[in-house]
Nucleic acid binder design. Structure first.
Lengths: 151, 151
DNA sequence: CTGAATGATTTAGTGAACTAAACCATATCG
DNA sequence: CGATATGGTTTAGTTCACTAAATCATTCAG
């Protein structure tokens, strides 16, 4: 089935779990529910957008998005602005993580990952980078396909 | 700051996002809320446990765990048994994913990852495996440290 | 300029999952 | 054996984010 050197199988379980756990822990530290955290991810990933757009992305109704953005804004992770030309629209954008605690945690994580990187030669890092890239694309595609099945 | 060959930085954002997205999509396909999915993860990861133990792990009260296990059991992802010697206690254990849809999605993911693996030599796979292992350990540790900050 | 359309908010009501506490069943201790 | 502790369930009440629909503001089309 899977050899000890098959990272694909491992990713499926352990790394994936660890990533999810860290993500959840960071979300909790930020004081965000899983749903709010997910929405923030959408804004961060896709850049500033209107409330309607965010509603479509998250599958929420317009009314729910108002509350969602209220919470994100109040917690300091997002900002509401009016659209320059169309003043009915909002521009919802993510702001830098405010809390020092969150910055510290993120910084610590970055350092820890740097220590991992340190242990590989430049050539090896190229290999790993290639794998990470392919895997990311695969996970994304599978996420979309899997989501499509739910309908 | 981070070179194109620094997988650590990439993991922090893109792969991590993709992993979380897939995890969420799979959870949705399984008909589980994020919280229930997380609890199921605990049972899968740590093996059979009593309701009290699960309550401690998830931070829920005893009453809430009853409902939680009800849902998991009803959806076919967990099973309640009585403890052999102490018949007050439950033994809550995860069962194999029942729904054909979930199996299909999991299978498709496994195949997709196999196609990624295919593109690397055995030597390269060893490098990747080493990186995955170190990264997993790091993420786990950081998840725990981050969770501790929340308190 | 008026009327219809669009974007966001507000309001009222609903549902899901939670807590706290009362409640059974079983186990353990004196 | 009786009293007390422990594990899980049940119940009553609360909280919170959601939807649907009414509302306000702005834009666009005729």
């Amino acid at each position: 089935m899977s050899t000890p050197a098959d990272p694909g199988a491992r990713l499926g379980t352990e790394l994936s779990d660890a990533v999810v756990m860290f993500h959840e822990a960071l979300g909790a530290l930020m004081g965000l529910s899983a749903a709010d955290n997910k929405a923030l991810g959408v804004i961060r990933r896709e850049g500033p957008m209107s409330a309607r757009e965010l509603a479509d992305r998250t599958g929420l109704t317009a009314g729910a998005v108002t509350g969602l953005v209220d919470r994100l804004e109040h917690a300091g992770y997002a900002r509401r602005t009016r659209h320059e030309t169309d003043r009915r629209r909002l521009v919802i954008e993510a702001t830098a993580p405010a809390s020092p605690q969150v910055n510290e945690a993120a910084g610590e994580m970055a350092q820890a990952m740097a220590r991992v990187t340190e242990q590989f030669s430049p050539d090896e890092l190229l290999v790993v980078a290639r794998w990470v890239e392919l895997t990311t694309a695969t996970m994304r595609e599978q996420a979309v396909r899997t989501a499509a099945r739910t309908t």
